[in-house]
Computed example of a mutant assay.
Amino acid sequence: MLNINKIHHIAIICSDYEVSKHFYTKILGFEIVAETFREARDSYKLDLAVNGIYAIELFSFPNPPKRTSRPEASGLRHLAFEVNDIKATERYLKDNDLNPEPIRIDEFTGKKFTFIADPNDLPIEFYEA
């Protein structure tokens, strides 16, 4: 059996680097740990942290293929971030024109959650603690 400690990071390939960088840093509030331009690949790599914990690697590549999001396809389904107040989160998302889905209740836990799409149509879930 492997001895895995935790999830180390999530890698996301974006279609528009500046738009995605703005979304993850200015809208969601992730902190920039490092930003590197890889000339040989004509690609940026942006390392991001949430509350000081390394979480996301954001990559840019020239002309990446569009992500299949709906109907749901195999592979990564969505990213989920824990929040303390789902109603306050919903207001913030609406104030930033992110069009959150109606708040739903998880039938198994009774917790509230909502979804938006990131600039690359990756589903992002906000799940109330």
Rank of each mutant, 00 (worst) to 15 (best):
D42R: 10
N99E: 13
L58M: 10
K21C: 12
S60G: 14
N63M: 08
R104G: 13
A34C: 08
P100N: 06
I27H: 05
L79I: 15
E101D: 12
L28M: 14
F23A: 08
K21I: 08
L79A: 02
K94N: 15
D47A: 12
I53T: 14
I10C: 08
Y24I: 07
P100C: 00
R104S: 13
T89S: 11
V50L: 15
F81M: 09
L58S: 06
E18L: 11
N63G: 07
L79H: 03
G75A: 05
R104C: 08
T89M: 15
F30S: 00
P100Y: 01
S60R: 01
A11Y: 02
E57V: 05
E90Y: 07
F37H: 13
R91Q: 10
V50S: 10
R91K: 15
Y54F: 15
T89R: 12
A55F: 03
R38W: 04
L98A: 03
A55V: 01
L76C: 12
C14L: 05
N99F: 09
Y24G: 06
P62K: 02
R70Q: 08
E90R: 05
A49G: 08
K45T: 15
R104Q: 13
N99V: 06
T36V: 08
I10R: 00
A34V: 07
H9D: 11
R91E: 13
E101I: 00
S74E: 14
A49L: 12
